[in-house]
Nucleic acid binder design. Structure first.
Ligand SMILES: [Zn+2]
Ligand SMILES: [Zn+2]
Ligand SMILES: [Zn+2]
Ligand SMILES: [Zn+2]
Lengths: 358, 358
DNA sequence: TAATCAGGTCACTAGGTCAA
DNA sequence: TTGACCTAGTGACCTGATTA
């Protein structure tokens, strides 16, 4: 293992809970219990575990048993790698997950929203908000994207200037959406058909939206390799437009993540169309798309209200809708064959992956 | 070493998992871990390693630990040579396995008998014949299939009666064809296009043909679990037809293997059509399909002549053609969606695998 | 004598187990 | 569900035989 050497330098202390550690587990120095814990829970959708205390529980040797949600979040944030979990005993594992799902699904009722104070976020909504951002950050997409940019910049000129090296990064931007949707609350409550429809209709816009966030957060255009790569791939005009979109992108990252999710749950990316009636017939999920949208938009509105006051919220909400509409219009123009081929393949894969295991 | 030169041209990338390689190991460019893996497992009977996920696991640096069965299969399919393993090890484990294997699979071909008769098989043809049968037996498909049947029978009733448990076995019957073609003489001399065309057109018939052989040799229908599984999967009528086909199947196993190969090299499974001219244009291989077919049919004919005399050979050859034609007609009816889905996936994989590495 | 490629070695870490 | 303990498989590194 490459990491063997690193383990020599590290103290034998669990990075997660501070207990005594005996070695690296899933790429992080952890104790036996955190290792087992991660193995058991990392592949479950994160919303199976809900924190009851505000998503910032301290995790120590003594308290690690108190909140699984925060423990798992800490595992991920320290870089424990779920890809190293092998899928051996398929049947038992999957069966158990399925059971868990059925048991837990009715349990967290996120719908008691408009209870007492209709203008502020309920505890449940705070949790939802927190979950969404954590799911997005789960695999550290920003760090990963930075790494890829560094990697590209370090390639020999021949390889660096290949379209593929840029396309790989863009593909990663888009693929992040899949792992986001995989674990985000509500998505798996939709029917398979609904999921498929959403992925097929919204992936292009969603991926672009997400790309804009990641490009901004990683300052991707400061890497000349990426900058020139994009100009070759998409043309100068499109790059300019991308930069304009980035300038106009909402500054608050948390907000962008919520908006990503709302966009994901929008019918054909047309959240302004209020006519859900016709398409509702095709949705057979128990928790309907419409309902989910309502929950999310309520949460967003309250959050905006809380952050910026009524007028600021209204303004922000308005510009969010404007932004998405502009994005849809722009992405509809399909700048590059290579790009749309890549996205098409990705959409296929995502569809397969997110409409399968149930 | 003769192979040293080859290693100069090859990139230092493991052919099995894509990890960094440092040289040739067992005649293939592999990493350290795949080398060690092959040394440890190649001499075991293959049924010691069971794939849990359909015998087509992807093997990468990250996933190579997930499925030993598929990893080993990939090692063999890329030509890693178990004969280069010297068993100096004191490890009695390996010794025992080796003995078992030698007992089970008498290696010296029993065919080097009658040589100097001009109207019968030449030395080269005897070797070819011997090669074909040994390639077929290479991974002990019959033993493996028996093992899978035993395994199914030993499952708890709930799992045993699942369609999947039967489909897994049938899938194995079909998948054997891939490893057969992978190593059989002449196949890799064809152009990639020719290979692709053959796989796409002939796999359904070939797989069925092979299934019939394996079902007979393993007495699969004597396992009630398999018997009922098939009736559920394909219906009573189709099972009855399968049994009829098995009754009519050529008794001589060696003959069936040759016929399998001839079928594999037939254009769209139509060996009776003598009009190769039109399709020849698409075949760009140096050794043409037509030529290969000629060699194989000559060999078959001589072998039949040698075994059964002229009249017997004629009769047998005729019934072989009849048999394949009936098979084609029957398999064209697509008994079950699950089945054809499974085969389609398999054909995809086989195509990818057999048209890639050259 | 260096390069290559066999086998050997053992720290490491995955999954499994079972009592609590 | 947890976590202490176990075991088997893995792979980075080593050794030695063979060869050009
Ligand atoms: Zn710990
Ligand atoms: Zn918590
Ligand atoms: Zn490898
Ligand atoms: Zn496998």
């Amino acid at each position: 293992m490459v990491l063997t050497k690193r383990s020599w330098h590290l103290p034998l202390i669990c990075q997660i809970c501070g207990d005594k550690a005996r070695g690296m587990n899933f790429e992080v120095m952890t104790c036996m219990s955190c290792k087992a814990f991660f193995r058991r829970h990392a592949l479950q959708p994160i919303y199976f575990l809900q924190c009851q205390h505000g998503n910032n529980c301290e995790i120590t040797q003594l308290t690690r048993g108190n909140c699984s949600a925060c423990r798992l979040r800490k595992c991920f944030s320290f870089g424990m790698n779920p890809k190293l979990i092998r899928y051996k005993s398929k049947n038992h594992h999957h069966h158990r997950l399925l059971k868990n799902k059925n048991q837990r699904l009715p349990k967290p009722p996120p719908l008691n929203l408009l209870e007492n104070d209709s203008s502020t976020l309920t505890n449940i909504e705070w949790n939802l908000l927190s979950n969404i951002t954590h799911v997005y950050d789960r695999e550290n997409p920003i760090e990963h994207a930075k790494y890829m940019l560094e990697h590209q910049a370090s390639l020999p000129p021949k390889l660096r200037s290949k379209a593929k090296s840029t396309l790989d990064i863009v593909e990663y931007y888009y693929s992040t959406i899949q792992s986001f949707l995989e674990r985000v609350p509500y998505f798996h409550d939709l029917s398979i058909d609904a999921r498929r429809a959403l992925i097929q209709h919204n992936s292009f816009t969603l991926g672009t939206y997400n790309s804009l966030l990641l490009i901004r957060e990683t300052n991707a255009f400061d890497y000349s390799s990426y900058n020139f790569g994009c100009q070759n791939l998409y043309g100068y005009e499109n790059c300019l437009m991308t930069k304009k979109f980035i300038t106009a992108l909402e500054q608050n990252r948390t907000l962008v993540k919520i908006m990503l999710l709302i966009t994901a749950f929008s019918e054909n990316c047309s959240i302004v169309s209020l006519d859900y009636s016709q398409s509702m017939t095709t949705m057979t999920s128990t928790i309907s798309l419409f309902h989910t949208q309502n929950i999310l938009v309520s949460m967003l509105w309250k959050y905006l209200n809380y952050q910026y006051g009524f007028l600021g919220a209204a303004k922000c909400f308005h510009s969010f809708i404007q932004y998405v509409l502009n994005l849809i219009r722009w992405t509809a123009r399909n700048p590059s064959t290579q790009h749309s081929d890549m996205v098409d393949t990705l959409i296929e894969n995502t569809t397969r992956s997110l409409t399968m295991h149930d």
